[in-house]
Design a protein around this nucleic acid. Structure first.
Length: 526
RNA sequence: GCCCCCUUCGUCUAGUGGCCCAGGACAUCGGAUUCUCAGUCCGAAGACAGGGGUUCGACUCCCCUAGGGGGUACCA
């Protein structure tokens, strides 16, 4: 049975690169009827682990990456928190000690450091002298009498090659002599990552370790542990990292300011930040950051779009296919087709996927997708009508592709505010209403016609306007811009006739009157 | 320093010796459509990191150089 795992630390956020690693693990396992395990790497023993874990679990659930075993779902191979598995690690250390694959070492950090520096001065490869190694209890007692404390180190081979087959990179080989006698157990008795990881993978019957490439160089020592413990080693596959937008280094949530120099990234962020502001979200780099997956959930991306984008970040099926639903992904994913080099995160391409999926979303679902944003922004009351023919549905219908992420609905404020609260974009008002000589007269005339047109819908309004300009021998542009600004407050937006219909007769009349009154008002210098 | 991995249009990628004077997607730039914006349609521009080999033939194989990344922690 194929079993894979993802082992996040409870850091309080889910990094976009981590999501991709998890996705590939999930796809690989589930694609062939296997299982995906979530294990919590909390060896740092921080407090409030469950609190720091929540955003990570939420993120995976939102994306539909479900785990077969782990927090919240349990399983036969638990516990799934490394902090609760210390006995297992201690037992493994004992075995290693007994087999002579590890030794108690009584050196101090300073002493080892001194050896390392001496080697560097001589331009020699560093290898610990094992001078404070205790192989017998008598030696140990002697060191302890000197007041020394022991760590446990791996007694690594110092000659020969470590070769293994990486499912993505092919045959990889390292010289054992490059390896160090790594510490696996601290003086306080706690164990380190490499030991814990190998033990857990074995105990949890993980068949394929698919992880970030920064672990490639760590693999020999893990193979050594694994073999010394008599385990059958899992298959390894090392994924390239996700690089920063427009760059080659690994993407990091702490380098936001650097990424803002990339215009696309900046736009993505600012668009998101505007939505966050409108719905009253806390907005700090810790909580609202495009490198963290929540960002996309918060501003209204579709999980399918995010997943599809991430799938193609370092993997492809062929030279054509870009869209994959869940079943197709599961069916086609393979490690052989994972790209070996880092892929840089492109916010614009992600947006392009979002647009495609938005277009495919049935209107009814689009309405309910968008509603929470309007509610949070205080634009509609609860509980709102949730149908296609509803006010929100009409706006969405008319807005079409302009609503790219759900939060974009807030750009269509003019359809959700009271007539007296409508804000006018001052520049547009000046240009389209106040400045053109005949604007006031035209608006007034149209206002009268709007009062009686039947029915008050887009086709009728279209016809009305055209007849109006024809009878007056003017160009439609002369009236349409003024009317748009008068009724929506903006010079850009959805089709004017649809807009008028949605605002309704009463609203249009009130708004036009407001605009007319406004012309008279002396502009305040701000 | 030493060791390991990586390197095709701006970006994601196809390409496993002749199908490639390199294909697709996003972005960009033109043109068409329209009441604005978005969209849509049509079109254009754009890459094999550099240098040596091997071969009748190299994006594809080998070597070197350069660049990027990782490891060399009582971090993960």
């Amino acid at each position: 049975m194929i079993r894979t795992r993802f082992a996040p630390s409870p850091t309080g956020y889910l990094h976009i690169g981590g999501v991709r690693t998890a996705l590939f693990n999930w796809l690989f396992a589930r694609g062939c009827g296997g299982q995906f395990v979530l294990r919590i790497d909390d060896t740092d023993r921080q407090r409030n682990v469950s609190e720091a874990l929540q955003p990570i679990l939420d993120g995976f659930r939102w994306l539909g990456i479900e785990w077969d075993e782990g927090p919240g779902v349990g399983g036969a191979n638990g516990p799934y928190y490394q902090s609760e598995r210390s006995e297992l690690y201690a037992a493994a250390v004992q075995v290693l000690l007994e087999k002579g694959a590890a030794y108690r070492d009584y050196s101090t950090t300073a002493e080892v450091q001194a050896e390392r520096e001496a080697a560097e001065r001589e331009k020699m490869r560093f290898a610990y002298s094992r001078r404070w190694m205790a192989e017998t209890d008598a030696q140990a007692t002697q060191f302890e009498n000197e007041g020394r404390q022991a760590v446990v180190r791996l007694k690594m081979p110092r000659e020969g090659q470590c070769q293994f087959e990486d499912r993505i990179r092919g045959e990889v080989s390292f010289s054992w002599r490059q390896e160090q006698d790594h510490v696996i157990q601290r003086t306080d008795g706690t164990c380190l990552y490499h030991l814990a990881s190998v033990v857990d993978d074995h105990e949890m019957r993980i068949s394929h370790v698919i992880r970030a490439e920064e672990h490639l160089s760590n693999t020999p020592r893990q193979i050594f542990i694994s073999q010394s413990l008599g385990y059958e080693s899992p298959e390894y596959a090392h994924l390239p990292y996700v690089a920063e937008p427009g760059g080659k280094s690994k993407i990091s949530k702490r380098k936001l300011n650097k990424y803002f120099k990339n215009q696309d990234f900046k736009k993505l962020y600012e668009q998101g930040a505007a939505i966050a502001r409108a719905v009253g979200l806390e907005n700090t780099a810790e909580t609202f950051n495009p490198v963290i997956i929540d960002f996309y959930q918060k501003i209204g991306y579709l999980p399918e779009a995010v997943i599809n984008y991430l799938l193609l970040l370092g993997w492809s099926l062929d030279d054509q296919t870009e869209e994959f639903n869940r079943e197709e992904m599961l069916q086609h994913f393979s490690l052989q087709r994972v790209v070996k080099s880092p892929a840089s995160f492109d916010p614009l391409k992600l947006l392009a996927f979002q647009e495609r999926y938005m277009r495919k979303l049935p209107m009814k679902q689009k309405v309910s997708f968008v509603l929470p944003f309007l509610q949070q922004a205080g634009r509609i009351s609860t509980p709102p009508p949730c149908e296609i023919g509803s006010h929100v549905g009409k706006v969405l219908e008319a807005a079409g592709d302009r609503v790219r992420v759900a939060g974009d609905i807030l750009q269509f404020d003019e359809f959700f505010v009271n007539d007296e609260d409508l804000e006018y974009d001052e520049k547009s008002f000046e240009k389209r209403v106040r400045k053109p000589e005949k604007a006031a007269e035209l608006l007034n005339a149209i206002k009268h016609q709007l009062a009686s047109v039947e029915p008050f819908d887009a086709p009728a309004l279209d016809q009305l306007l055209h007849e109006f300009v024809e009878s007056r021998q003017i160009k439609i542009a002369q009236v349409i811009h003024a009317l748009r600004v008068a009724t929506t407050g903006k010079s850009i937006g959805i089709g004017l006739f649809e807009a008028l219909e949605i605002i309704g007769r009463e609203g249009c009349l009130a708004r036009i009157q407001r605009a007319l009154d406004r012309i008279e008002v002396t502009r305040k210098v701000s």
